[in-house]
């Protein structure tokens, strides 16, 4: 939702980044304000996932130029864990499995670590159990998930729900959902989307990175951006996603080329 008195949460200017010495992001600009939901779409290889990893601070992605301000502060001065504590959350496209660590143990440790850093109260195991079970209802998750190893043997949909559960617990200001819809059947997509919608409010912002318009039927974006070759080449409202669905990406690409030639 676009609000009048919103604050700028994320400001990206001229962002450039390399992976293994190859430039993937080539001058990306994006402004995200509180309350807003942005969708970043684009063909494979356009740099969408690289952008999310750069925001979360993955060390394999080397920032070579530009600036990213998170709530007015230089994001690149923060280690990945500091970003998480400050309120940046990345829902992974491929959540990692950690055999041997119970999900409940992992969730409580991350929750309490972030709470402590934010100067809030930590929860003991019993209190946490109540808290997390309440959050799990939102995602229609079976409490059995608490006793299983983190993501181990989870289906694609279960892993994504576990990601959104973590988001619900950590209450980020900026949530980046990297292809959260990939590999989800229609029920799982509905559940995950309901969860995300429930968590969206006027103080936080969401960036949905997605390949398909399908997700946007469930989570309605305020802005849709098209990425190509490491840049955002077009920005529109939610109707742009529908247009992309029917017409593909080529026309946006052609339009952008023409505009550049004209300039």
């Amino acid at each position: 939702m676009i609000y009048q008195d919103s604050k700028t949460i994320l400001e990206v200017r001229g962002l450039r980044a390399n992976v293994n010495g190859v430039e993937i992001l080539k001058g990306l600009d994006l402004t995200v304000k509180s309350g807003e939901i942005h969708a970043i779409m684009g063909p494979n290889g356009s740099g969408k996932s690289t952008f999310s990893k750069v925001l979360a601070g993955h060390s394999a992605y080397e920032v070579t130029g530009g600036t990213v301000l998170f709530e007015g502060k230089n994001l690149f001065e923060l280690a990945p864990e500091e970003r998480a504590r400050a309120g940046v959350f990345l829902a992974f496209q491929y959540p990692i499995e950690i055999p041997g660590v119970a999900n409940s143990q992992f969730l409580r440790l991350t929750y309490n670590t972030v709470q402590a850093e934010r100067g809030k109260d930590e929860l003991d195991p019993l209190e946490f159990d109540d808290y997390v079970r309440e959050k799990m209802k939102l995602l229609e998750m079976n409490p059995d998930f608490l006793d299983r190893s983190v993501n181990e043997g989870f289906s694609g949909g279960e892993k994504k729900r576990n990601e959104i559960l973590q988001m619900a617990m950590l209450e980020p200001k900026l949530a980046i959902l990297d292809e959260t819809d990939s590999g989800l059947d229609i029920d799982a997509l509905r559940i995950v989307s309901n969860g995300v919608n429930h968590l969206a409010n006027k103080d936080n912002a969401m960036v949905l990175v997605t390949h398909y318009q399908r997700l946007l039927n469930y989570i309605v974006p305020d802005y849709v951006h098209v990425m190509e070759a490491g840049r955002i080449i077009k920005t529109g409202g939610k109707e742009l996603a529908l247009e992309l669905e029917t017409r593909g990406y080529d026309w946006v690409s052609a339009e952008s080329k023409a505009a550049r030639l004209a300039a």
Partner: peptide
């Protein structure tokens, strides 16, 4: 390193993340 990054992206320090993964390796 992907596992370490995953845990750090959840707010755990690098040391805690590494300890947790090492523990998990043995805990199996």
């Amino acid at each position: 390193s992907e596992e370490v990054f995953y845990l750090r992206s959840r707010g755990l320090s690098e040391i805690v993340a590494r300890n947790m993964l090492t523990y998990a390796f043995g805990a199996e």
